[in-house]
Design a protein around this nucleic acid. Structure first.
Length: 189
DNA sequence: TGTATGATTAAT
DNA sequence: TTAATCATACAA
């Protein structure tokens, strides 16, 4: 289980800790399970965060209780899944960018819009609890990951605060959306 | 009321 | 590199 205050920390601390954890969804007849291999942290104090400017109807769940979901629609097409972190009434969260198949280094969903598409996650999960959730939840990873297992780099697809390195991914995973130059992990075919 | 713009993806 | 696509934010 997660420590009591796991999500009550800065998003830049929670994001790397979510790598290796399981994202699980129960459907009527089956269950889908993946290992999180890529995350990004966002926080009110920097410009790329949706809540940097002010609270609105669409971003208000990002200001919610840590340990709940923040889901938004991107480019009018894709849903993106976040876990709210840090503290209430403060915009902060971790974007789940890629997930791989458990026990096999194979692609399940590489890209935030594909994660929600693969799992069938839409806005209806917005602001629901991450733990103690019967339909969609996250469970703790089984093994300890060390810093050498992760690559830390800058976030993708943003126009502001590009210098901040708040993106993490599992080294050697075939299910990452984009690798840094020089990372020679085998590409998924 | 009008316009610009994404925490993207897939195809070129 | 670019089109697709649309709700939202913000200006006027």
């Amino acid at each position: 289980m997660f420590p009591k205050n796991f999500f009550y920390r800065h998003s830049k601390l929670v994001a790397p800790d979510l790598i290796g954890c399981y994202l699980i969804k129960n459907n009527e007849k089956d269950q889908i399970k993946g290992i999180i291999v890529e995350t990004e942290a966002y926080s009110q104090e920097e410009e790329a965060c949706h809540g940097h400017r002010k609270i609105t109807e669409s971003n208000k769940s990002l200001f919610g209780v840590p340990g709940t979901f923040y889901i938004y629609k991107s480019y009018g097409i894709h849903h993106c899944l976040n876990i709210v972190t840090h503290k209430e009434n403060f915009a902060s969260g971790v974007l789940i960018r890629a997930v791989m198949i458990p026990n096999r280094n194979e692609r399940l969903a590489s890209g935030p819009g594909l994660v929600t598409k693969t799992f069938g996650i839409d806005i209806s999960f917005n602001s629901y609890e991450v733990l103690n959730n019967k339909f969609l939840w996250i469970s703790q990873r089984e093994s300890i990951l060390e810093a050498k297992d992760l690559i830390q780099t800058s976030r993708i697809g943003i126009s502001k605060a590009k210098n901040i390195k708040w993106r993490w991914y599992l080294k050697n995973s075939r299910s990452v959306s984009k690798r840094v130059k020089g990372d020679r992990s085998p590409k998924f075919k």
